[in-house]
């Protein structure tokens, strides 16, 4: 990856500003991001349901669907980063590109590690570009991690957990607020038998999936921007681009005095 041709302004930023740039990136490319997101999330949920239905007692095991869907976040992250890595160069990737790239993303981006011992890493989205985009392995990759380190990545992770939790609790809260008071008593069974009521579970699961769908693209984009910011810092990308502009000005002046 080289700084020329980037569709993102390269300048020295604080970690917070890099995080905010991640949100601007999501806003600018939300269509392609969410089409890719649905193209991976919906088949995954469908597959989980089919597998559980085939392999076990469905009545008993369906609560595993949300847990599995949550655990598989690193898989969706790779799809999102695939779209984002095109987006920073101003190229729009659609869900078809994603499906075409999927075999490579599944096999050559450290997915197995990310789903096992790496799943609870606090620098997941910051380190993902090294796994997925740099194409390095073994000792070189370790050196890359040391060089990049990941300032601001753990803070981002910690805050995104909270934002996701707020939405996860806020969505059922909103439904409850919107209930007309006269209906509330007749619907109280949803909350009263919360241990057994399928309604309660359905609302929880939908809220969880929705909260994840809102926060995860931002989390991946912000981690990616922290990564770009760190590379700008240690490789002097801002200076490289500035020097190119200055050299072009001097050359133009020389050519036409």
């Amino acid at each position: 990856m080289k700084p020329d041709g980037l569709a993102v302004e390269i300048r020295a930023r604080s970690h917070w500003e890099a995080t905010d740039l991640g949100l601007a990136l999501v806003q600018a490319h939300w269509r392609s991001l969410y089409s890719a997101w649905l193209a991976i999330l919906l088949p995954v949920i469908f597959l989980e349901a089919a597998l559980l239905w085939l392999l076990s007692d469905y009545e008993e095991s369906w609560p595993y669907i949300p847990i599995l869907s949550w655990w598989l976040k690193p898989l969706y992250d790779r799809v999102l980063l695939h779209v984002l890595s095109r987006a920073v160069f101003g190229v729009k990737a659609n869900w078809r590109d994603v499906l075409r790239a999927l075999p490579r993303l599944l096999l050559h981006s450290g997915l197995f590690r990310a789903l096992t011992i790496g799943r609870l890493s606090t620098r997941r989205s910051f380190r993902l570009p090294v796994w997925q985009l740099e194409g390095v392995s073994g000792k070189t990759r370790k050196q890359r991690f040391c060089a990049l380190w990941g300032h601001g990545a753990a803070r981002l992770f910690f805050l995104c957990i909270h934002l996701e939790l707020i939405l996860f609790l806020g969505i059922p809260g909103l439904l409850y607020l919107l209930l007309p008071t006269e209906f509330a008593p007749s619907l109280e069974f949803i909350w009263d038998d919360s241990q057994t009521s399928p309604w309660f579970f359905a609302i929880q699961i939908l809220a969880g999936l929705l909260a994840m769908s809102i926060i995860e693209p931002f989390y991946v984009a912000a981690g990616f921007m922290l990564y770009l910011n760190r590379r700008t810092e240690i490789e002097g990308w801002d200076i490289e681009l500035g020097f190119r502009t200055l050299a072009a000005r001097l050359n133009a002046q020389q050519a036409a005095p």
């Binding site: 917070w16 995080t19 949100l23 803070r155 995104c160 934002l163 912000a222």
Partner: peptide, 8 residues
């Protein structure tokens, strides 16, 4: 400034 620093 975006949501993350503002939330903090």
């Amino acid at each position: 400034a975006g949501p993350v620093p503002r939330a903090l």
